[in-house]
Nucleic acid binder design. Structure first.
Length: 199
DNA sequence: CCTGCGATCGTCT
DNA sequence: GACGATCGCAGGA
């Protein structure tokens, strides 16, 4: 069953943790591509120096973070990769959860078709935030749309629940500029899952 | 296994 | 004009 708006109305750390194990569903020409979320990072509040919206910075790019929970925030990084974020919480409070890695469930051929890499290791298909968006064909077209009512990208419950003791926390990746916020343990991933971007 | 490096462009300063 | 919530490849160990 698809997650409803209430799911996204909590603070980003809570949502980031709850998203582990959920299924990210992409619909293309009637075909469903399903993958399981295995790694997330929370960015939130105007005090988080790791967040794009630090200091209540509201610009064209960060605008979606100020929208209601369930909104999709996509941005371009390094001029070539799109990263997918889920906005959480109430309007005006900028929070987001970065989806860093997923494990393919159905439609792996679609993902392979979108990824041109020499590696023949399956985990290289979606073990990183830029890789999964390329594999699932997620780009700026999704920015500011939402996961609650949209048809071509949403998140649903999985039949396979995650146990609390399978969840590991660590500092977030590549945010050295975030000063004292750089070491906050706001990255969450499923222990011993081969699709996690790095241990 | 690990390290180093170039690619590439929208956004903000 | 600088840079980034990254990636893929090459080359060495």
């Amino acid at each position: 069953m698809r997650l409803k708006k209430d799911f996204y109305m909590d603070n980003p750390r809570v949502v980031a943790k709850k998203l582990l194990g959920k299924e990210l569903v992409r619909k293309v020409n009637g075909q469903l591509i399903v993958s399981r979320i295995v790694e997330t990072e929370a960015y939130g509040g105007i005090e988080d120096k790791g967040s794009h919206a630090y200091g209540n910075k509201r610009t064209k790019r960060t605008e979606p973070m100020f929208h209601i929970g369930g909104t999709i925030y996509v941005y371009l990084i390094y001029g070539m990769y799109h990263l997918l974020n889920v906005v959480t919480g109430p309007v005006g409070d900028p929070n987001g959860v970065l989806i860093r890695a997923v494990e393919p469930v159905y439609g792996i051929d679609f993902i392979k078709g979108n990824r041109s890499i020499k590696s023949n290791k399956v985990y290289d298909l979606t073990n990183g935030p830029g890789k999964l968006t390329q594999g699932l064909a997620i780009d700026m077209d999704f920015n500011q749309k939402d996961l609650v009512s949209g048809d071509d990208l949403y998140i649903r419950e999985s039949s396979k629940a995650i146990k609390g003791n399978e969840i590991v926390q660590s500092p977030r990746v590549n945010i050295d500029y975030a000063k004292e916020y750089k070491d906050k343990p706001w990255r969450y991933f499923i222990a011993e899952n081969s699709y996690v971007s790095k241990q």
